[in-house]
Amino acid sequence: MIVPRHYKEIPQRYRLQGNRCKACGRVFLPPRKICPCGSEDLEDYNLSWKGKILTFTIIRVPPAQFKYQKPYAVAVVELEGGGTIQCQVTDTPLEEIEIGKEVEIVFRKILSEGEAGIHCYGYKCRVV
């Protein structure tokens, strides 16, 4: 049953709701309680829905829930205004995916829990 976990992560997965260190300005998603700089003074911060690909990999042997999507890419995206996220790349042919390419973050269905369980939504990115 993934309902409780999905429910708890809704702010992060639906709205990119993370936090930012008031001392050094670093941005985190998921939010952290303590910044690596040592500060515990962090504020809520909604990350940007625009960014660029920092790095990526192609998944050719995916977990069972993603088997009908193969091959697909997972990227680390550096967002405008700070913070990085890791997400699937959607709506983009694999040959178009390159480091440094501009992406927009989109709201998509990440997975469905079997035939009768919940749909879990969250963020992915696509090349602009």
């Binding site: 959607t90 989109v106 269905k109």
Partner: peptide, 16 residues
């Protein structure tokens, strides 16, 4: 629709 799109994701983007 892509495999990860449905009425909810389409409605979301239009609403945004």
């Amino acid at each position: 629709p892509a495999q990860d799109e449905d009425t909810i994701t389409i409605a979301y983007q239009a609403a945004k």
